[in-house]
Amino acid sequence: MLRAIIKTMRVKQWTKNAIVFAALVFDRQLTNPVAFGRTLAGFFLFCILSSTVYIINDIMDVEADRQHPKKKYRPIASGQLPIPVAIGIAAFLLIIAFPISYVLSPYFCIVAAAYFIINLAYSIRLKHIVLVDVLILSMGFVLRVGAGVSLIHVERFSPWLYVVTYLLALYLGFGKRRAELTLLSATASSHRKVLDGYTIPFLDQVIMMISGMTIISYSLYTFSAPNLPTNHAMMLTIPFVLYGLLRYLYIVEIEGTGNAPDEILLIDRPLQIAILLWGICVLAIFYLF
Rank of each mutant, 00 (worst) to 15 (best):
S224D: 13
L220I: 05
T222F: 01
T230Q: 14
L249R: 07
N227C: 10
P226V: 07
T214R: 00
P239Y: 11
I216A: 06
A233K: 15
Y221M: 08
M213S: 02
S224Q: 14
N231T: 10
F223C: 08
S224W: 10
P226L: 10
G212C: 07
T222E: 00
F223H: 12
A225I: 03
L220V: 07
A233W: 15
Y218R: 01
L236S: 14
L236I: 14
T237I: 10
F240D: 05
Y218P: 01
L220R: 01
T214Y: 00
N231C: 13
Y250Q: 04
L242H: 09
G244F: 04
I216G: 11
L236T: 09
L245R: 03
L228V: 07
L236D: 12
I238Y: 02
P239L: 09
S211N: 04
L246P: 10
P229H: 12
N227D: 12
P226C: 03
T230P: 10
Y243N: 10
T222M: 01
G212I: 07
T214L: 06
I215L: 11
S217D: 00
V241E: 08
L228P: 03
M235R: 14
H232C: 07
F223M: 09
Y221V: 02
M235V: 12
I215H: 06
Y243G: 07
S217E: 05
G212R: 05
L245A: 05
T230S: 13
A225T: 03
F223I: 02
F240C: 06
Y218H: 01
M234F: 15
S217M: 05
T222L: 00
F240I: 08
F223Q: 08
L245P: 01
L249Y: 09
R247C: 06
S211H: 05
A225F: 01
L249F: 15
L220K: 06
P229A: 08
L246F: 13
R247P: 04
Y218C: 06
L236W: 15
H232G: 11
Y221T: 07
T214H: 00
L236P: 08
G244M: 04
P229E: 01
T222Y: 02
M234T: 13
I215S: 02
